[in-house]
Simulated scan of single mutants.
Amino acid sequence: MLLAVGCGVLIGLERQWRSRTAGLRTNALVATGACAFVLLGQLAGQTGDPLQIAAYVVSGVGFLGGGVILRQGSSVQGLNTAATLWCSAAVGCLAAAGHAAAALAVTAVVIGVHLLLRPLGRLVDRAPTSGGDEQRAYRLELVVRRKHEGHLRAQVLQALSGGDARLRGLTSTASDDDASTTLTLELLVDGSETHQLNQLVERLSLEQGVRSVAWQEGSAGEPVDGDAG
């Protein structure tokens, strides 16, 4: 039991340091609970099957992991957290079965995956693509009435969540008379197609409080097709 708690704490420390939903206590409790259920099967002797109980633990942790998975538009968040909880349960089962070396090895692998593969994943994300899938930078500028700024921010983020455009930055600049605000969004769009930006401009131009909206390629230059308002 102490081995399961210790391994769960080690996994949870990395998650807590990253400020993830399931941190130190959650991973420690998952490992402890998995260990306790498997020990129950061992203590029951002939009336219990440890492997069958371990299978139930896997199913139960699957439901627990499903609670931390969130879908926002076309993206899914929480998969790494759910997978980590699953691994913590596996560590607890190994500890209960008396396989201390295996439990420690799995713990080291889980922590190593989080620490070492994270930079590799970011490097792969930044790698340029070829052909028509090359990402291009665009700037979207909206001039909105100050009192409608919050609502329009939410509308823009919602519109971008379901498409191929990736938001890289958002700045807000108030006008001299403090009656309007300029929202500047830095976007990355896959390929050279700009129909999504045109659709976004048309949609935003119909929103209440929008004075003007335009997009342009790159971070400088005159606006190209897409002016509205």
Rank of each mutant, 00 (worst) to 15 (best):
G121V: 02
H114L: 09
A100P: 08
A90S: 10
V113R: 00
W86A: 01
W86K: 01
G98A: 09
G98Y: 10
S74C: 09
A101Q: 13
L104M: 14
S74N: 15
L123R: 13
S130F: 13
T129L: 15
A103R: 07
G112T: 04
L94T: 06
S130N: 12
L79S: 06
A108D: 02
A127I: 09
G65P: 05
S74R: 15
L117Q: 01
S130K: 12
A100C: 09
V106P: 01
A100T: 13
L104F: 10
A102F: 09
R118F: 05
T84N: 01
V124T: 12
R118N: 07
L116F: 11
L117V: 11
A127E: 08
A95M: 08
L104W: 12
V91I: 15
H99P: 05
A83R: 04
V110Y: 00
A101E: 13
G98C: 06
L94C: 14
L64N: 04
A97G: 13
R118E: 06
V91D: 01
C93T: 14
P119V: 04
G78T: 05
L117P: 04
G78V: 06
V68W: 04
R126Q: 14
L85R: 03
C93Y: 05
Q77Y: 14
R118V: 08
I111N: 05
P128F: 06
Q72A: 11
L79N: 02
A97N: 14
A108K: 06
A102E: 13
A101T: 13
W86P: 05
H114M: 03
T107M: 08
A101L: 10
L85V: 04
V76Q: 03
V76F: 03
N80T: 15
L115G: 00
Q72G: 05
R118I: 01
V106C: 12
T129Y: 09
A89M: 02
G73P: 09
T129Q: 15
L94Q: 13
S75D: 09
A89D: 02
P119C: 07
V113I: 15
A127V: 13
L117R: 03
V106K: 02
V68D: 02
N80A: 08
G65H: 01
